[in-house]
Simulated scan of single mutants.
Amino acid sequence: MDDLKLFKGGEGINDDDAYKIWIRTSERYAENASGVSIEILNSPKPTSILNMVEFPTLQLNTKITNVITGGNNV
């Protein structure tokens, strides 16, 4: 996603605000998910929102029965 530079330059939200929105969106997804969660990955960094927020939140969610990952895991 970083390569897309979705929040660089121009009008609208800045990088910091976009990051905060993405964190909260991922957290809410993980908190409200149920059943099997499927994560499609492309070499996420250890400090990625997926690794720092979403996956730990899924692990704490008692409504999740399994987390399946696919793609280029590191």
Rank of each mutant, 00 (worst) to 15 (best):
P44N: 01
K8P: 00
L50D: 10
T69V: 11
M52N: 12
L4P: 11
S37A: 14
Y19Q: 05
P46N: 03
N51G: 04
P46Y: 00
R24A: 02
E54I: 02
I68W: 07
Q59E: 14
D15E: 12
A18F: 01
L60H: 13
K45W: 09
V74S: 07
T62E: 15
D16A: 10
Y29H: 14
G9M: 04
I40M: 13
G9V: 02
G9I: 01
Y29C: 14
L58Q: 01
F7Y: 11
I64L: 11
A33Y: 02
E54N: 09
K8E: 09
K45R: 12
K20L: 09
E11S: 08
L50S: 12
W22Q: 15
T62R: 11
N66C: 03
R28M: 07
L41F: 03
N51H: 07
T57A: 14
S43I: 01
G10A: 06
L6V: 07
T65I: 11
L50G: 13
R24V: 00
V36W: 13
I64W: 06
D3K: 08
S26Q: 04
A18R: 00
I68N: 11
Q59G: 13
L6M: 14
G12C: 11
P56K: 02
S34E: 09
G71W: 07
N73V: 09
L4R: 11
D17L: 08
A30C: 11
D16W: 06
I21C: 12
T47R: 01
N32T: 04
Y29A: 14
L4T: 04
R28Y: 02
A30P: 04
E54L: 11
R24Y: 05
E54S: 08
